[in-house]
Simulated scan of single mutants.
Amino acid sequence: MVGVLPGKSKADEYVVFSAHYDHLGLVESGEDKVYNGANDDASGTTAVIALAKYFKENKLNERTIVFVVFTAEEVGGYGSKEFSKSIDASKVVAMFNIEMIGTESKWGKNSAYITGFDKSSFGTILQQNLAQSNFKFYPDPYPAENLFYRSDNATLAALGVPAHTISTSKMDIEPNYHKLSDEVSTLDLDNMSEIIKAIAISSNSIINGVSTPTRVKR
């Protein structure tokens, strides 16, 4: 599913906000058979919808914003791969992929991390835009997990786009990761709201055409 908010002075330059809405499906037996995927990744899908509403009301985007939620991330990222074929990667200025923001990060509230932080200036720009706030973005603390290459940002990043994933998931101790217990009752919705607000604020200079992240080296 894709929504587009045309830009003004730089309409041929795109900023993408994305997430995925699939999960692992069903188990064959038991009282609870559904992998709801509340954190992974209904939380990210919620963020994309909220950001679309915000930017539509804001009406200050100089660059075109593309809001997209993918299917088939959990079985190979087929949705994002198909999307990458349909968009001119040279025109994509940045991609904010949002995945698993429903729990507190290892640093607690008002914080999140960015995968592939050292691969472009994307993360540094976001940090600068939040300098006057209480929210902090950190580099991915789980490099051994190769998270930069495991989400829907990977295909566009491989084409040079500064496409990064924003997350709070504690990959070493997240108790409900890929489990039936990933239910909405396990999420910190207030903290999630603050993360979405921080993403909106941190993207401001990119949306408005003031900042342009460096490209990811192929």
Rank of each mutant, 00 (worst) to 15 (best):
A144S: 07
K59H: 13
K109I: 08
A144D: 07
A200C: 14
G102Y: 05
I196C: 07
S193V: 07
D188V: 03
A112L: 02
K53L: 13
G123P: 09
N129P: 10
Q127L: 05
V34K: 02
E99V: 05
I98N: 06
S169F: 08
E74C: 06
I49H: 03
L180G: 02
K170H: 14
G79S: 07
E31S: 14
S205M: 08
N208V: 04
T186M: 02
A163T: 07
A11P: 10
D172W: 11
I114D: 00
F17T: 11
I87G: 04
F122P: 04
R63K: 10
I166E: 04
D182I: 00
P141T: 13
I49S: 06
L147Q: 01
A50I: 02
P139M: 00
K56N: 14
D32H: 08
S185I: 02
P139L: 00
L60Y: 03
Y177L: 05
D188F: 07
S151D: 04
F17D: 11
Y142K: 06
V48I: 10
L147S: 02
G116Q: 03
I87Q: 02
V48T: 09
L126R: 01
P143Q: 03
D172K: 10
M192W: 03
L159A: 14
T46V: 15
A52C: 13
G77L: 13
N176L: 00
V2Y: 08
L130T: 12
F148H: 01
T212D: 10
P143I: 04
E57G: 09
V48S: 09
E13D: 08
K8R: 14
S202P: 14
V16C: 11
T214K: 11
V48L: 08
